[in-house]
Design a protein around this nucleic acid. Structure first.
Lengths: 158, 158
DNA sequence: CAATGCTTTCAGGCATCGTTGAAATATGAC
DNA sequence: GTCATATTTCAACGATGCCTGAAAGCATTG
């Protein structure tokens, strides 16, 4: 499958967006392409050819996508080559994993308990209270989100 | 004011944390130090001396803190020198500004409407639905947060 | 088991960004 | 107005990280 002009433009838009937040260009292009390519499953070699990236770059950046849980390896029936695709619920997973970062922020705030400044201690405690608040609110929020977005997050078949 | 061992350890912990997410070391150290220094208001020269950073670095990184809304310039009564301090509600502001990023994600998803893949279009639409969900949930969440964390986010005086 | 194609690894080149030190500018004190 | 001090700007150095191209490693096919 060869890329249309509109598809190229979209990949570029996604790539530009995530690059602004510090992602590697190739990482972001692969993400954008895996969002819209057809079929959804692709080999590394195809991705490299489609986007004009070297095989090494695709290998490296695709691995980080897999580690982050955005992309999964699949085997297409009849074909034994390794293929990759955007995970169903990929975006959902990103939001769900926010809870870990919230907790880490709470730990960071509590680590300052020993040296709380007398002058405006809320500089530290505010962060802790904030983390506690989100740690409480996040799980029910995620449940509402799951209920609303996809009543049955079923496994996609090929 | 000279830094104690414990204070130094805390600044380092904060700096290590934010550096992991790609922040510049000096940026993160300044943030950590402004969280716990006493008094809370400090000049650039003091920060540079306290942390062992060059004046230029402090100037640059402090500006980004100000632009991000984490730090504000203040004038202490009696003293005419420029001082900086962590803004009251700084952490709150970070969370509140998330709404903009959520909206940007929604725009990104909608930009893909023209080229929705027939095969598994949810790769794109899921992101849009997610953004819509958060765009709806975020404002009331922020209100609850404001109510719970600080009933009166009054301006801090010197 | 040979051949082919795909993937991984890695050294080197390139670009970007953070930091410094010094010079220029601005600000406040006298 | 002049001096002293604080801040900003900027060129240059250094470090970090991305990307490539090539070589090595796997795996599937005939």
């Amino acid at each position: 499958m060869t890329m249309t002009e509109a598809q190229h433009a979209y990949v570029d838009r996604v790539a530009t967006f995530f690059t602004m937040f510090g992602s590697a260009r190739a990482w972001a292009e692969i993400l954008g392409w895996l969002m819209i390519c057809e079929p959804a499953e692709r080999t590394q070699a195809e991705i490299a050819a489609d986007l004009g990236l070297s095989a090494g770059t695709v290998s490296t950046q695709l691995r980080t996508h897999v580690q982050l849980g955005m992309v999964e390896q699949v085997r297409v029936r009849g074909d034994r080559t390794q293929r990759y695709r955007l995970r169903s619920g990929a975006w959902y997973g990103v939001m769900a994993s926010e809870l870990e970062r919230i907790r880490a922020l709470g730990d960071l705030a509590r680590a300052g308990d020993d040296i709380l400044p007398r002058d405006r201690p809320e500089r530290v405690t505010e962060l802790g209270d904030l983390a506690d608040f989100f740690a409480r609110e996040w799980p029910p929020l995620m449940e509402r989100m799951a209920a609303e977005l996809d009543p049955s997050p079923s496994e996609t078949r090929i």
